[in-house]
Amino acid sequence: MSDDDEDSKVRLEFGLPADASGYQRHECPSCMLEFKVKGNEARFNDTVAWWTSRAIAESGLVETQSESSSSSQMTCPYCAKPADAQSFLYGEYRSYVYRIAQREIVEPMVFGMLSNLNRTVSRRHRGMVSLRIETASETRSPRPIAGPDPDDMVRISCASCDEHFKISEGWSGAIRCPSCASELQIS
């Protein structure tokens, strides 16, 4: 990797809310029901990186490679439909990741491009009519914050894969483990 490649990388460090027991909220893209899964750093990093890349791509500032799917799959405990792990990211968390990506990556890119354009125009038009592009402010938007998630739902352990997750209180009947898709009975 060249120094230019290294200079163009941005490292973001932030977390998504978890409840007091360390479970993060998810939402099924099919049935829209919520559940929680014990924090998994690899799945978390993969999901956040995917949504951050998507937010940057949607800004239109950089060309991106075609969207690739996540390497990890999850299964909805309620409707048993599988999908890429990033599809299960809770809607409020998706919005939070988008706002972080906008503030930490997209806004500095826009300000940098405008600054470069001003320098280029200033050099080319010295002694002629002056042209200056001004932005309303080069102050970045406030950094979004996310508070703790309520410690709700009923804890379930999967004997097949040792995954720990939570489902809505009052749910009865069969459920699936989000990690291994094993069918579990709630009594």
Results as ranks from 00 to 15, higher is better:
residue 2 S to H: 14
residue 3 D to Q: 09
residue 6 E to D: 09
residue 6 E to R: 15
residue 9 K to R: 13
residue 9 K to H: 08
residue 11 R to P: 00
residue 16 L to F: 02
residue 16 L to R: 00
residue 17 P to S: 14
residue 21 S to E: 14
residue 22 G to Q: 10
residue 23 Y to C: 04
residue 23 Y to E: 07
residue 24 Q to S: 12
residue 24 Q to H: 03
residue 25 R to A: 02
residue 27 E to W: 04
residue 29 P to W: 10
residue 31 C to H: 08
residue 32 M to I: 04
residue 34 E to R: 12
residue 34 E to A: 06
residue 36 K to A: 07
residue 38 K to S: 01
residue 38 K to G: 02
residue 40 N to F: 03
residue 41 E to F: 10
residue 45 N to G: 08
residue 47 T to I: 06
residue 48 V to W: 00
residue 51 W to T: 09
residue 52 T to M: 01
residue 55 A to F: 00
residue 56 I to V: 15
residue 59 S to G: 11
residue 60 G to I: 13
residue 62 V to S: 11
residue 62 V to C: 10
residue 65 Q to S: 15
residue 67 E to S: 13
residue 68 S to L: 06
residue 70 S to I: 00
residue 72 S to R: 14
residue 72 S to C: 01
residue 74 M to T: 05
residue 75 T to A: 13
residue 76 C to D: 04
residue 76 C to K: 05
residue 77 P to W: 13
residue 78 Y to V: 12
residue 79 C to P: 06
residue 79 C to I: 05
residue 79 C to F: 08
residue 79 C to D: 06
residue 80 A to G: 03
residue 82 P to V: 04
residue 82 P to L: 01
residue 82 P to T: 08
residue 86 Q to T: 13
residue 86 Q to C: 13
residue 88 F to A: 04
residue 89 L to T: 13
residue 89 L to Y: 03
residue 91 G to K: 06
residue 92 E to N: 09
residue 96 Y to S: 11
residue 97 V to M: 02
residue 100 I to D: 01
residue 100 I to K: 15
residue 101 A to D: 04
residue 101 A to Q: 01
residue 104 E to H: 02
residue 104 E to P: 00
residue 108 P to K: 15
residue 109 M to H: 00
residue 109 M to Y: 03
residue 109 M to L: 15
residue 115 S to Y: 05
residue 116 N to A: 15
residue 120 T to K: 12
residue 122 S to F: 11
residue 122 S to M: 08
residue 123 R to M: 14
residue 124 R to P: 00
residue 126 R to S: 04
residue 130 S to C: 04
residue 131 L to Q: 02
residue 131 L to I: 15
residue 135 T to H: 04
residue 135 T to Q: 09
residue 135 T to L: 15
residue 137 S to Q: 03
residue 137 S to R: 10
residue 138 E to Y: 14
residue 138 E to G: 06
residue 138 E to Q: 14
residue 140 R to F: 11
residue 141 S to Q: 13
residue 145 I to L: 12
residue 147 G to Y: 06
residue 147 G to V: 15
residue 148 P to K: 08
residue 148 P to D: 08
residue 150 P to R: 07
residue 152 D to C: 06
residue 152 D to E: 13
residue 154 V to N: 07
residue 155 R to A: 10
residue 158 C to S: 03
residue 159 A to V: 11
residue 159 A to S: 11
residue 160 S to Q: 00
residue 160 S to M: 00
residue 163 E to D: 10
residue 165 F to R: 01
residue 165 F to Y: 07
residue 166 K to H: 00
residue 167 I to G: 03
residue 169 E to H: 13
residue 172 S to F: 00
residue 178 P to A: 03
residue 182 S to E: 15
residue 184 L to F: 05
residue 184 L to G: 08
residue 186 I to V: 13
residue 187 S to C: 08
